[in-house]
């Protein structure tokens, strides 16, 4: 079956034999964007978190057929070196990553949260950021989320 969607703002059409194939594998192995990670394949670790129409979604548990007509964003589309998302900028400033493998999933979750809760509290962060980081960079991630909220606020102020 043919499925069409927008990936990081560019239209994509993929031909799949099984529409139930998790979107994760289509993104990684067919469309060759490797920033979205496979960690468990059971929607437990959050390493594969992407945005579907702006909502955080775990792509290992999301059948590709549901992507039809949707706006999909991955870490590669969140921001770029030239134009980083506030979350990415904050992640750099706070030197968050260690091994780095889980970080795209965390950044996608954090960006989705800041979209809904621009000024989160500790409790908001605890309740909304439930991915797993084995290097346990949680302490810096929390600092970076606060910094990203600040950067986002500043950026909003600059736009007239």
């Amino acid at each position: 079956m043919k499925i069409s969607f927008k990936l990081n703002k560019s239209p994509q059409t993929v031909e799949v034999a099984d529409g139930n194939t998790p979107l994760l594998w289509i993104i990684r192995d067919v469309l060759d964007l490797k920033g979205t990670k496979f960690g468990c394949g059971k929607a437990a670790c959050g390493a594969c978190t992407i945005h579907v129409n702006g909502e955080a979604v775990r792509s290992c548990s999301y059948a590709v057929k549901f992507a039809e007509g949707k706006e999909i964003t991955t870490i590669e589309g969140l921001g770029s070196e030239a134009n980083p998302h506030p979350v990415q900028q904050a992640w750099i400033e706070e030197v968050v990553p260690q091994c780095g493998y889980c970080q795209p999933g965390f950044m996608m979750a954090a960006a989705a949260m800041l979209e809904k809760i621009p000024q989160p509290t500790d409790e908001d962060i605890d309740n909304n950021i439930i991915n797993i980081c084995r290097c346990a960079t949680y302490y810096r991630m929390r600092k970076a989320i606060y910094k990203a909220a600040e950067l986002q606020k500043e950026a909003a102020r600059k736009i007239p």
Binding site: K34, I75, E81, Q88, I92, V95, P97, G100, Y101, P104
Partner: peptide, 27 residues
């Protein structure tokens, strides 16, 4: 000094073993 691998890790570069690819690769 900031980590030298920061940007690769923040912008999702294909840097891990699982990200490796070769032409005609099978699984």
């Amino acid at each position: 000094v900031p980590r030298v691998d920061l940007k690769e890790k923040v912008f999702g570069a294909p840097i891990f073993g699982m990200d490796a690819g070769m032409p005609d690769m099978l699984y």
